[in-house]
Design a protein around this nucleic acid. Structure first.
Lengths: 256, 256
DNA sequence: GAACTCAGTTCCGGAATATGGAACAGACAG
DNA sequence: CTGTCTGTTCCATATTCCGGAACTGAGTTC
């Protein structure tokens, strides 16, 4: 057969990686024949490659002969280092959002009924946020928290909603209204509800599941994130969050 | 060079998988040179293989040139299907434990301050447990829950400890004593603390981190799991949990 | 129960593909 | 500038992988 596509000198690995990706990404565990057909490889080649992948625990074959992600993937997922690696994958996106807005950027995930900040890009202004990494903030009065609540990554805690400022939403019904508007717009805002003078917007990050896995937020002083500048910041935030989502394989579902 | 080791016909893939495993399993992100040395491959070959793996998002290179698990792994870990796959990996071990003991076997993980049962093997007796999958039981009075508490997979909830039976441990200090004895023995017991007549033992499953990720339990009626039979059941349970742990790459740390 | 079908593995000759030594390209140090 | 260290590219060679065909084994059908 003539050389057609890649002059890389790694044909076997390219093909094996193709099969592996199909197994990992595929919605349903795939059968041998499906994989062979989808990849366009000869039966014999497919068999050899899949056997090799199986031998190295990259895929696993169930008794029905369907292929699942192998032990190496399961092991990795449970090792607990996935958080750190999420940060690493997200960092360039956060940096980009920092460039676009100039404000403080945070990546937050749900942890024990709070938002845990796991990565940050600092504002380029003198007046900006301090370092929030490691800080846990309440779900109901932060932009990230509202996003996590609205998109199924967290549940409203049983305890009464603490009034951090006079603007904080403390009524559960009112919070529900707020959350459905967050779902509709695709982003959340906190306008001096967490701390006087602090305004933030946040957008959800998806990774394949139906619930968000994290939130990206842009925060700054009310003086710089007023009614005129906020829409642009929100748009940037949503866009970057969607870009990260698509890298992570999440459907980009703006609303609902 | 003469053919030495494997007559498989997948040399390139074997080598690439070797490198990939080193990157994923390695405690520290590895550099190019370290990988080349550890695998014993020629520089040129290592370079070509790693570039191919990177192209397929199986590894990722940071600005310092160190290699991290690629986007495919991060994506997989966050997709939320890891639970289901843990069950699939664990099933044969649970089956084996079921064979050994004849009793009901469950795999439980922490979820929202309870133990969520995610897989089960049924007792071979008429009098046995019903199906617990999907059922959430309290942490402080189940064997699995005690294991998860003792080995850092869960924290004692803030709420008062519910007295499910008259034997349930409701004192926090008493629970702490119990947990440290669990850590010492390497397994937990619940003796009619959850439900009258129900006895269970459980052992922790590790996956590389310092905290347990799940617990395997053996449960049955007090009549069949009395003082004479319980030690054997506990030993079997611990052994199988350790076998699963080592498949998942967890250090087999009995105590401490 | 023999003939067919379908899923998947093994075989094998041929040639395309991966291999590794050496040359090369940067980056940093002295 | 010279030396060292990391990593990539080049290229001729022959080793390794490819794919068609034969084979195996489990169902199905008649």
């Amino acid at each position: 057969m003539a050389v057609v596509s890649s002059p890389t000198g790694t044909q076997a690995i390219d093909r094996a990686a193709l099969l592996l990706t199909q197994v990992i990404q595929g919605a349903e565990p795939a059968s041998f024949t499906e994989l062979a057909a989808a990849s366009g490889l000869a039966k014999s080649t497919t068999s050899r490659l899949l056997t090799a992948l199986e031998r190295h625990q990259l895929v696993r074959r169930d008794p029905d002969g369907r292929f699942w992600p192998g032990e190496l993937f399961v092991r990795y997922a449970w090792q607990g280092t996935a958080d750190a690696d999420l940060v690493a994958v997200a960092q360039p996106y956060l940096d980009q959002l920092g460039e676009l807005t100039g404000e403080t950027i945070n990546l937050g995930i749900e942890s024990g009924n709070t938002v845990q900040q796991v990565a940050q890009v600092d504002s380029r202004y003198m007046i900006g946020g301090t370092n929030w990494v490691g800080l846990a903030v309440p779900l109901h009065c932060s932009a990230s928290g509202k996003v996590l609540l609205a998109f199924g990554a967290a549940a409203v805690p049983a305890e009464p909603l603490e009034a951090r400022t006079e603007r904080t939403i403390v009524s559960r019904t009112q919070l529900e209204v707020e959350l459905s508007s967050v779902r509709e717009r695709g982003f959340a805002v906190t306008d001096e509800e967490l701390e006087p003078g602090l305004v933030a917007v946040a957008a959800p990050v998806f990774a394949g599941g139906l619930a968000a896995i994290a939130a990206i937020s842009v925060s700054g002083p009310a003086s710089r994130l007023g009614a005129s500048q906020l829409p642009a910041a929100a748009a940037n935030c949503v866009e970057v969050a969607q870009a990260l989502s698509s890298t992570l394989g999440g459907q980009i579902e703006g609303a609902r």
